[in-house]
Amino acid sequence: MTIKTRITDLLGVQYPIVQAPMGWIARSALASAVSNAGGLGIIETSSGELDAVREEIRKMRELTDKPFGVNIAQAYVRDGDIVSFVADQGVKFVTTSAGDPNRYCSQLKEAGLTVFHVVPSLSAAIKAIEAGVDGLVVEGAEGGGFKNARDVNTMVLLPLVCSKVNVPVIAAGGMVDGRSMAAAFALGAEGIQMGTRMVSAAESPVHQNWKDAIVAAKETDTVFLNRFGPGPACRALRTEKTTRLEKDPGENGVSPEFRNAMALYFGGDMEASIALSGQVAGRIESVKPVSQIISEVVAEFDEVMAQMSAKYARV
């Protein structure tokens, strides 16, 4: 089955399912699995390790002949020529995030790339449209990772933005299965982005302890950190460390905690740093291969849409 929307037309994919661009995680092993399964894998640049990113893109071309994209997380860009770097890799789709959409949009468009910007509010969405983006990733506050401190959940944010813009929208935050995808479509989206579900996937490079913690988490087992700064707010799994930081992030905020990220991400020490995660961790019951995740999402989406039509359609 193919799901046809403006997203699939723009991205050239079978399904409008995008993998979130998590730092150090969104690399070739995971991204190629997503693309090969009919979705769109994304390679991150937020790690700042552009030589490694270049190698991951080279690996992508060995691992898949399907489309994939790159994310530019503007707050973490360490290369003033990041646009040329991305364009030189031959990719055609870019998401920009964590900054002003005007910073790179025109350059990326001039280089022939399709550009979507990640937005946490209606005002940010309007600003991105005025900057000339091709589409939006509308990200609700229940999602994992770095967040707008003035949080708005997907159920409110997504239909609000979709009612005010005409560009295609990818929904992020709370997306984990076919039922949540159907809900996002009902609210105006034409695609979804999954982060936490992909962190827990078999092909995800993170340590098994992190995957096990996601599977074990209840729906209440995330924390919203650093709401009052300094630095960005974020949503993460609840651990002893993050429970302390929830109450007292310290005078420097939580950003210094990411200095030890590798010990958590790949060493499995869940107290060494902060395990970014969305509330959907409470709905993930097992580690599965990406191909199974995507096939189940698509099958359930189709089933839910058919059931809704049969149950509520009027003759």
Score class of each variant (00 low, 15 high):
Q193G: 02
A263H: 13
D269G: 04
C105A: 14
G195E: 00
I170A: 01
V287S: 04
D212G: 05
R78V: 15
Q292W: 06
D79A: 08
N71E: 06
A189H: 01
L245F: 11
G80W: 02
I274Q: 04
V161Y: 02
L237H: 06
L157T: 03
L50S: 09
A272I: 14
H117W: 01
M60T: 14
A299K: 12
V297P: 01
A306Q: 14
F228L: 13
M181D: 00
E240D: 15
E240K: 15
G268Y: 09
I72C: 11
A201H: 06
Q307Y: 06
R103P: 00
A182K: 03
T196D: 07
G188N: 10
Y104D: 07
D248R: 14
N71K: 02
K127Y: 00
A189G: 06
S291Q: 15
T222Q: 07
K59R: 15
V70A: 10
V70Q: 01
A213N: 07
E251S: 15
F116A: 05
A26D: 07
I170V: 15
L63P: 09
P67R: 04
K241H: 11
R103I: 05
A310R: 07
E251C: 11
A236C: 13
S106E: 10
A73W: 12
V176F: 13
G191H: 02
A98E: 06
M1N: 00
V77H: 02
A184K: 01
L225R: 09
A217H: 08
S32Y: 05
M308P: 00
I192V: 15
T45F: 01
E55N: 14
